[in-house]
Write a protein that binds this DNA or RNA. Structure first.
Lengths: 131, 131
DNA sequence: ATAGTGTACTATATCAACTAGTACACTTAA
DNA sequence: TTAAGTGTACTAGTTGATATAGTACACTAT
């Protein structure tokens, strides 16, 4: 379900955040579904419970999941993304970075756009659906 | 020319690398042009010369600039991107991350594609030129 | 009661990033 | 030759994020 990369400097809690968001975006986990408990996931990944807790707190801060004390943690409803303004600007900035990187790699405009389009097909669907 | 963000955890040397690549991709600096010396840039940005040196070494590793001992550092020719395979895979991965983030932000497919297209227009040119 | 949930807290260890200072090898020009 | 400017290498030290370990608390469900 979640695989950690030992190599590289990306923090464990960030890897959990990204992969959890990817699973939800792909539809592998759906709204209201229960995610693994802090202790369960920490024992599966052989890491400290505090590290999982930190990841879950970040996910909740972004509105991706919702925690209920004593019950557990669940996938939140996708209607109200929090910090939308700041994260939108951050997304803009990352798009710029990626385009610059693509050009330095020698990619042509069509190659880059095609790379994006392929990923969009996977996430949003192939055709031109409403969402 | 280069502006550092105090806030945030992004290392200074990485900010220099990214901004320098952006300047070159935009055409603000052209092949063969001299870039500021290590000591000059470090004194301008009020940072340690070693930090600038580290950024320049990373840029040379990526084939973006070329250093000549005793003479200075210059924008390299864009013909031979190094580490192309690894960096291409890294670019793929980042594209996935961005698409996931965009979907979590509630963006529709067309909005995301439009955001990309706008940046491509800026870097590669508006029309459908060969490059 | 008991077990399972998320959370909070202190303490500790590790490592990357950054700074400071010094020194060396090289190129260019006076 | 001398002086100034280039990139580079090295040691030493500080800071902050990351992760771990251990303990404890409040809540929920059975």
């Amino acid at each position: 379900m979640i695989r950690l990369q030992e190599r590289g400097t990306t923090p464990i809690y960030e890897q959990i955040v990204e992969q959890m968001k990817a699973l939800i975006a792909k539809g592998a986990m759906r709204t209201g579904e229960k995610v693994p408990s802090v202790r369960e996931l920490s024992s599966t990944l052989l890491i400290n419970p505090n590290t999982v807790s930190k990841a879950y707190q970040e996910l909740e801060r972004q509105g991706v999941i919702q925690t209920i004390r004593g019950k557990g943690t669940f996938v939140a409803e996708p209607d109200a993304p929090r910090m939308a303004v700041e994260r939108n600007e951050a997304l803009q900035e990352e798009v710029r970075r990626l385009a610059v990187e693509a050009k330095h790699l020698g990619l042509k405009r069509e190659q880059f756009v095609e790379m994006i389009t392929r990923e969009c097909d996977f996430l949003w669907g192939d055709g031109h659906a409403a969402d």
